[in-house]
């Protein structure tokens, strides 16, 4: 089948970008979306042109490197799917596909479809860990954890840090990402000890990084490739409220 692509091309952070059109792109329905871009790039290289820069690595939906918005939707139209797992059988012959980078003031564009998501790292550095040093741990089975609780923590922990939540949110809010980490750790007894200071530090850092405020549109939950629930946001709101009311600062 043949597709028309409109791809965001931008030389670097300081230049203005625009959509460029690529007609008659030959596509096999069994290809992944990224393999389709590979084909376009091979063609561009053959024409001695700059290939489309895009971030990708594991190509199996776990590293979180993909950062494309496909026809207005981060990671494209399929539920619970990253761009690398999206296959061309979900598109129609002759369709026009618009590909843009994740957009948010906190994710500056580096080139074409590549954006800088280091703000996420800084949010984690502000408190997204359990303060245990190597060697300090007790036996792994000394604290039983109720299975349901462990499963809920796992679901929150399945976040791959791709940033689709920010890209989807009309407010470019990073609440889903932050709350997933806050929830993952706060739900487990190991992380509960620091839960209050953690939520304060991480939320403050998130705001400092310039992400927007949550207005509960729920777009993040819909676009999250790991289908992380906004229940986590409510949990974080609750924890933040409690922590800030009890805080002496």
């Amino acid at each position: 089948m043949k597709l028309t692509l409109k791809v965001w091309r931008q030389k670097n952070v300081n230049t203005k970008g625009s959509l460029e059109t690529y007609n008659n792109v030959d596509v096999d329905p069994d290809m992944s979306f990224l393999e389709m871009i590979d084909v376009v790039n091979e063609q561009l290289i053959a024409e001695k042109k700059e290939p489309i820069a895009f971030e990708h690595d594991c190509r199996e939906g776990i590293c979180g490197a993909c950062s494309m918005v496909i026809n207005g939707r981060p990671h494209g139209p399929q539920q619970g799917t990253t761009t690398c797992q999206l296959h061309m059988r979900h598109f129609k012959d002759g369709e026009t596909v618009v590909i843009e980078p994740f957009r948010s003031a906190s994710f500056p564009i580096i080139k074409d479809l590549v954006v800088d998501r280091s703000a996420f790292d800084r949010i984690i550095q502000s408190g997204g860990y359990v303060s245990v040093k190597t060697g300090q741990a007790q036996d792994a089975n000394s604290i039983p954890i109720e299975k349901g609780l462990a499963d809920t923590a796992f679901e929150a922990a399945s976040c791959i840090g791709c940033g689709a939540c920010v890209a989807a949110c009309p407010n470019a809010s990073a609440m889903l990402f932050t709350s997933a980490k806050v929830s993952h750790l706060a739900l487990l007894p190991q992380g509960e000890v620091e839960a209050e200071s953690r939520v304060m530090k991480m939320v403050d850092k998130m705001d400092e990084e310039g992400f927007g405020m949550c207005s509960n549109t729920g777009a993040c939950e819909v676009e999250c490739p790991k289908e992380i629930s906004i229940e986590n946001i409510a949990r974080m709101n609750r924890a933040y409220l409690k922590a800030s009311l009890g805080s002496e600062k």
Binding site: G72, R103, G218, V222, E223
Partner: peptide, 11 residues
């Protein structure tokens, strides 16, 4: 933001 805006992910 986006050239294509979608209404599919939020009311």
């Amino acid at each position: 933001r986006y050239a294509v805006s979608t209404s599919k992910n939020a009311s």
